[in-house]
Design a protein around this nucleic acid. Structure first.
Length: 926
RNA sequence: GGGCGUUUAGCUCAGUUGGUAGAGCAUCGCCCUUACAAGGCGAGGGUCAGUGGUUCAAGUCCACUAACGCCCACCA
């Protein structure tokens, strides 16, 4: 970290070096304190890589952690990664498939070894990327869901739940993924409307010639597993058939006609075929009527009916054949187009099959009850609050959670079977053996647990549970969970349930739910659409060819490549510039509004990169004017100017707002507050005004010292305010100026977050400063409208000056002269003495610039008319209100007073403008 | 079928307990003024999706409508 600042901000020159310095110095370790602050990261997939959603989320978590560290809390941002069972297994399987190897060729043990190898190889990607984001993480505490300790927690939880009958094993209909050959939970099934058909099939009524019952189905191939036909008990058309049987086509079986509410007389023919082994509804109907479960599919979802013509056929092929056969037999009544909801596995996209298997379940209802209560009672708060509804809706109607998966990568279920199939659930094989008795041969259950089972323990398993560790004591319950709405059910709800169950406490006090990061068009970013942005590319920049290559590589549908390439070339003709981490983080903060998705806009990143540059250059200015000079670090008289007092006063207000905004999770407002303070107040006004003192040879040592001190100290404080959002640039600049500001410390991240001092709020200086600003802005406006060069010094006359104006003028004329670039200021003693001029109004004060070579009377008339129009519009609005008796009668006094004042001001303005207009027109006509 | 969200300047978005609309970017004009052209100064631009209601007063509260989006749900 050098002291000489380049004259242009170049993030690449500072960011990585600073991070390394922090890490080398172990600066991220928590500092001991009484109060604690803890956030656990939603663990990303261990072999994944950082996407925009992560970058956004990480920015917020890091911002909060850094803020609390600066506030003096003992902070822990607990990070780590998730083994992501199915996702990771699929990745590795795909890699093996490239060499024509299946996992079955390798066998379970070898395959798992391969996955660990892959983790070792690619597992560092995401943590490297987190470092690039500037994340203040104590890396010694990094955890992985399949670490030994976390795995013990999983076993402990499983055993305890089993012992309390909250985990059970049973044969149920599950969502079966025929590609993965595993059960998945309800949440892993995504239903979407698709075009299909509704087949109306004729089932001959047994023993009756030419009498058919027409059933409507979207799944004709499951006919082979039908065990009844249901009609509504109230349906007059079929009442007489209840209790009879039909001859099930394509089989030798006869099945009963039963009465059940499930059959809707309005839908289709009013008759439903009942296939209890292959449909969730039918399963329930089957239970009510004691119907047999006839399984006709195998784990690939092919027909499994040895001896049948359809045996071994894929379900969709079987469907075709069966329909053709039925048609031949004259048993197809009609085929109608029909839109239906098709359930697909979220990983494979294959059609999910309801399938009868043995699985492990968590009985969630008793857990959900407690989890609902803590949110109702406000022990856990969702931010924004509207997510409560979503949470309650789901929790109130929650189904048991199928937790077993027929895959290999994950926590193996801690259950063993003896030769008779008797199950022993235990923490480990020894314990199981002890339960079973010596000499009994045990085999462990082959299944592994749903990944979300271990994720549900994350807030306490990472802190050492089930051991009673100091970390658990210190940091649990954690403070806030920062996450996306998409995993409220998968993760948040389950953490709450398990947290309460096993620690007796909520896992976190608040849940900050953020939106999704979308592309500029508002589309979800996805690899297949080729609209993904890599946060690292925004930080480092990327040339067009590399970007195109990256976006078109490894597509599932290679034919999309051309389209993606075209679209990419159009959107980024010059690739992407390097903006740096700080600009990216500031962008995320500025877009972090509550309850809304983010449309990611590159123009904004550029704007905030420019903001970094502004801050950088302001700091250069400060350095140039304070380095090697006396800034009052060692005492000495200090005299503060109006500008000094004003900026210090404003700073107090900004400090107050900043803290409130962070505490309220309004990072967008925080960004806005700091941006405008730095740019519009510190740079545009304050820095400019300091030049007057700093370049004034007649200024006293105390005045110079006061200005230098204020210049550097306000900057130093501002850097601390900005640090949680922009860690790198603030550290770099802070290192350069800290000595001048009279502060010490190794790193800005351990300095206190600024807090306002009420004594430094100086409303008088704010008022007087406003006067100075108004006079200067008034003249600037005339310059702008008249196209007068800023370098041209203007003679200025003041007319109708009040005592108050005269006082201000006496004190601050040097500001006006230099900053306003006035040639002279003269106060007119008599109204009538004013020459023809362009006029700016500051309250009742008239600031005049006499007509001359650079002031055009006609242009002034145009300008005055514009102003007049505004004034008249104001008057119309306010007068309208005041003339309404009801308003004067009922509105609160301060509102009325304010309106009266507005009216008076507007009318003063209007009168002055009219007078000027008159003079101008008279002048022109002369 | 339920539930939720969004609709404000050309674009992306703010707008706290109702007091008469703001920012950034883009646009237009003038400036290379000794921190910064990734800059300075000035300007233009909005019937706050629509209708109705409450109120002295509605972008803000209520009801309905429309469009878009998301979540949940077994209609075969």
């Amino acid at each position: 970290m050098s002291n000489a600042l380049d004259n242009q901000y170049q993030p690449s020159k500072i960011e990585q070096a600073i991070y390394k310095a922090w890490e080398d110095r172990n600066a991220f370790a928590a500092r001991d304190a009484d109060s604690a602050y803890c956030i656990v990261i939603p663990p990303p997939n261990v072999t994944g890589s950082l996407h925009m959603g992560h970058a956004f989320q990480d920015t917020i978590m890091d911002l909060l952690t850094r803020y609390h560290r600066m506030k003096g809390d003992q902070t822990l941002w607990q990070v780590g990664t998730d083994h992501a069972g199915i996702a990771t297994q699929m990745v590795v399987e795909r890699r093996l498939a490239a060499d024509n190897i299946s996992r079955h060729d390798l066998g379970r043990e070898k395959f798992i070894e391969k996955i660990w190898e892959w983790k070792a190889e690619s597992g560092g990607t995401i943590t490297r990327q987190l470092r690039r984001m500037g994340a203040a993480i104590d890396w010694t505490r990094e955890r992985f869901t399949m670490d030994e300790g976390l795995s013990e927690a999983v076993e402990e939880v499983f055993v305890r739940l089993y012992e309390e009958d909250l985990i059970y094993r049973g044969q149920r209909l599950v969502n079966w993924d025929p590609v993965l050959h595993t059960a998945v939970s309800d949440l892993e099934v995504e239903s979407a409307e698709e075009n299909g058909s509704l087949w109306h099939l004729r089932y001959p009524v047994s023993g009756e010639q030419d009498t058919y019952l027409v059933v409507a189905t979207t799944r004709p191939e499951t006919l082979l597993g039908d065990s009844a036909v249901a009609v509504n008990p109230e349906d007059e058309r079929y009442k007489h058939l209840i209790g009879k049987t039909v001859d099930l086509p394509l089989t030798e079986r006869q099945i009963p006609i039963v009465a059940d509410e499930h059959a809707d007389p309005e839908f289709g023919s009013g008759c439903v075929k009942i296939t209890p082994a292959h449909d969730f509804n039918d399963y329930e109907v089957g239970k009510r009527h004691d119907l047999p479960l006839i399984n006709v599919l195998d784990k690939n979802a092919s027909i499994d009916l040895p001896g049948s013509d359809y045996h071994g056929l894929d379900r969709f092929e079987a469907r075709k054949r069966m329909v053709a056969d039925l048609q031949e037999m004259g048993l197809v009544d009609a085929i109608k187009d029909h839109k239906l909801m098709v359930p697909r596995g979220d990983r494979t996209g294959s059609v999910i099959e309801p399938y009868l298997t043995d699985q492990w379940y968590v009985k969630v209802e008793p857990l959900a009850k407690e989890a609902i209560k803590v949110v109702e009672d406000g022990e856990i708060k969702f931010v924004p609050e509207s997510w409560n509804t979503t949470y309650f809706n789901w929790m109130n109607d929650i189904q048991d959670w199928c937790i077993s998966r027929q895959i290999w990568w994950g926590h193996r279920i801690p259950a063993w079977y003896d030769e008779d199939g008797k199950v022993y659930v235990a923490r480990n094989e020894e314990e199981a053996q002890a339960k079973a008795g010596a000499g009994v041969t045990l085999t462990q259950d082959n299944d592994v647990l749903d990944t979300w089972f271990s994720s549900a323990l994350w807030p306490f398993s990472t802190l050492g549970w089930p051991e009673k560790t100091p970390e658990l004591n210190k940091y649990y319950p954690t403070n806030v969970l920062v996450t996306g709405f998409d995993i409220i059910f998968f993760w948040v709800a389950r953490m709450i349930m398990f947290g309460l169950k096993f620690t007796g406490q909520v896992p976190f006090r608040e849940v900050y739910i953020h939106g999704l990061v979308r592309d500029q068009e508002g589309d979800k970013m996805s690899k297949s659409k080729g609209n993904v942005l890599d946060p690292i590319d925004l930080i480092d920049g990327i040339d067009l060819e590399s970007l195109v290559a990256k976006r078109t590589k490894g597509l599932m549908q290679p034919k999309m490549a051309a389209k993606i390439e075209k679209q990419t070339r159009k959107q980024f003709p010059n690739g992407i510039e390097s903006y740096g981490t700080d600009a990216l983080r500031f962008t995320f903060a500025s877009q972090a509004t509550l309850g809304r998705d983010i449309r990611f806009d590159l123009a904004r990143v550029e704007g905030y990169r420019n903001f970094c540059n502004k801050l950088w250059n302001a700091s250069r200015f400060v350095l140039m004017n304070t380095e090697g000079r006396d800034c009052g670090q060692n005492g000495g008289d200090i005299e503060l100017s109006l500008a000094d007092r004003w900026i210090i006063s404003r700073l107090q207000e900004v400090e107050k707002e900043a803290a409130e905004q962070i505490d309220g999770y309004r990072f967008d407002q925080l960004a806005q507050t700091l941006y405008s303070f730095v740019w519009d107040e510190y740079c545009s006004w304050y820095v400019e005004l300091t030049k007057i003192v700093l370049n004034d040879e007649t200024a006293s040592e105390a005045q110079q010292r006061g200005t230098r001190q204020t210049l550097v100290r306000v900057l130093e404080t501002t850097l601390r305010l900005l640090h949680p959002i922009m860690p790198f640039i603030t550290e770099e600049l802070w290192q350069s100026i800290k000595d001048l500001a009279g502060v010490d410390g190794d790193t800005i991240m351990n300095k206190e977050f600024p807090t306002p001092d009420a004594d430094k709020i100086d409303s008088q200086s704010v008022t007087e400063m406003k006067w100075v600003q108004n006079v200067i802005t008034g003249v600037r406006n005339i310059r702008g409208e008249m196209n007068i060069s800023p370098s041209k010094a203007l003679p200025v006359l003041l007319n109708n000056a009040s005592q108050h104006d005269l006082n201000n003028l006496e004190q601050y004329s040097h500001y006006l002269m230099k900053f306003g670039r006035f040639e002279s200021i003269d106060v007119l003693s008599q109204e009538s003495a004013a020459p023809e001029s362009a006029t700016a109004l500051v309250g009742s004060l008239k600031v005049l610039i006499p007509l001359g070579s650079f002031i055009d009377a006609e242009a002034e008339v145009v300008r005055l008319n514009k102003e007049l129009e505004k004034a008249e519009k104001d008057i119309a609005g306010v007068a309208g209100r005041l003339n309404n008796p009801a308003f004067v009668d009922k509105a609160p006094e301060p509102v009325i007073a304010k309106a009266r004042q507005q009216l008076q001001e507007a009318e003063t303005t209007k009168a002055a403008l009219l007078e000027q207009l008159e003079r101008m027109t008279a002048f022109i006509s002369k």
